[in-house]
Design a protein around this nucleic acid. Sequence first.
DNA 1: TTGAAAGCGATACCAA
DNA 2: TTGGTATCGCTTTCAA
Lengths: 362, 362
Amino acid sequence: MKKTRSKPADRARVTLDEVAAAARVSAITVSRALRHPQMVSEELRRRIDGAVLRLGYVPNIAASRLASARSHAIGILVPTLYNVIFSEYLQALHEVLLPAGYQLVVVNSRYSQEEEEKAVRTLLGQRVEAMIIVGVNHTPLTRRMLNRARIPVVETFQIAHQPIGLNIALDQVQAGYDATCFLLDRGYRRIGFLLGQRDERALERLAGFSKAMAERGLDGEQLAMSLPCPSTIALGAQLMASLHERKRVPEALFCIDDNLALGAMQECRRLGLKVPEDVAILGFHDLEFAACASPSLSSVATRRQELGTLAARSVLEMLETRAPLRRKTVNLGYEIRARESTASRAPERRQAKGGHPRRGEP
Amino acid sequence: MKKTRSKPADRARVTLDEVAAAARVSAITVSRALRHPQMVSEELRRRIDGAVLRLGYVPNIAASRLASARSHAIGILVPTLYNVIFSEYLQALHEVLLPAGYQLVVVNSRYSQEEEEKAVRTLLGQRVEAMIIVGVNHTPLTRRMLNRARIPVVETFQIAHQPIGLNIALDQVQAGYDATCFLLDRGYRRIGFLLGQRDERALERLAGFSKAMAERGLDGEQLAMSLPCPSTIALGAQLMASLHERKRVPEALFCIDDNLALGAMQECRRLGLKVPEDVAILGFHDLEFAACASPSLSSVATRRQELGTLAARSVLEMLETRAPLRRKTVNLGYEIRARESTASRAPERRQAKGGHPRRGEP
DNA sequence: TTGAAAGCGATACCAA
DNA sequence: TTGGTATCGCTTTCAA
């Protein structure tokens, strides 16, 4: 055994060659025995398995990746791990991609395009075979790197005007617009908008809100209230308290997500404001607690899991067929779920379009 | 350029050699220019940087890892990504380890020791330089692999009786015990226990609960109620509803975490039960919404962030010094936060020990 | 400061 | 079915 470049931990690391020596076969046979057992005779397989166990052999993935030029890794980019939305989405990705033999490399861009750029560089350095990204706005360099990489790329959660590869999303602007119309239709006029950090998706929903308000001659921007924090129940309570202090409690509140909405509802109770009589509240995403809140929380249901499942399946397909995309964009839509927190204020003037189960068109 | 083993995507991949050729220097100089710029003259550095940009070079990490025998990766094992507790913890790990130049490889064991074993194998195959694991119960093979790997290992969240390496935790049994005593001291006798899946930490807290109840001659196990689901607000509501249906609503409820507690509180409101008059409710972890719930939720505050920060810092230290551990276990303790949801039932018989700010002893 | 040569540990290709 | 040998792309070692 030659050892020109011995490292301190050398003793601890067992290599394929050592296993091969112990089993009295060649290295390549050991490699095959581990990856395609049926290609190796039972006799040798037994000897090899024994040696592997005895020596405690663990294959070196770096070597394998280098030699095979395949990483079996898929890069996943999310803006934060601190939001259930993305946990559910990740879960779905896991469930499809792990059984297919891929490893996920999850990176958190912390809502920053610069961090995203660094992350993309790192992931490409790892030679990920595909990339699934939350969001559609990237730095020019990020776009260039992704285009150059010639790997399947899926952008999710927002409609991309210029998709890099495939785009699986819901129309956030339209959702914000429809949700606002839903409140307007129920007779609310002074409608506030609560949000935490102004990330891409929040801004799109806000744009939809402003558009709907503007169409009725109402000023939307004026009534938006935000703090640059993760949108949590506590933040919702805080924002509501702040509205109350400034005596600017509106007739209805459209919250950027159900966390803010629930926090706002809690604070209302504390302040002696009744929901929906004094303030109606509408959330977003229809998180698991919305239906069982008290009063139950109206919300816009989104399909995060399906989004993840579909993104993952598409990647697998693209990886297999290498065929050009049949379509660039898949619009998964959403659905407004009317519950107690937004009971109609005045007798309705128009039919509620069957509970507004509106879906973005595919 | 020889190409005995050409791969389809070959054209797309720029190598160090190609950059070197383009910059008219040797490969090793390019390598140095990228990793230790100050070791290369400014002239060459400029030429190299230009070539890198022009060719869109992205280093192949597998090759780098193989050649340097260093992965710069740290393995992180969590039971789920679906719980804020672990999101906060991960966030803390990120914040310490990324700036130190390490990459995190996060694997989700889904509360299964078998999946954990697979994950450990994968991580060791990636030659992670250290490992940070939630939990202390592993399969024998997992333990063996970890011991053999001769890398820093940190087990977190629970006290380990036989730590593999370092152990940073809070005493879950004691916390369950103390929390139960807190309720008993406030005059509650029929105390129920709500939990979701019976994972290691939940079972330890339950054990503490049972012990405290048994000491007063009360039967704890009898009053525990669980469903094998992630512990969410919705589950809390469901469990509470189920207690009510069976007419087994107790005087107080100790919930495995604040999610269940909040869900139970919501359901109480729906059922017309007053908190704390009809049922007192105590949560665990003191999540961000506990203090702003209405009524505010009593809880046992744990220090997840510090746990992560400390684990990460310890790993860095172990990686640097390679010195034997000065101590095997760090007990971070916890603190009971009494709020409205557990107001005293009867006039108190003993002093509440200053609000029970009890911390496990270090 | 720069470079030549020799691996790192696995797999692909081809031959036996 | 099994094995020999040439790589994969980068870094280490040593020398200039």
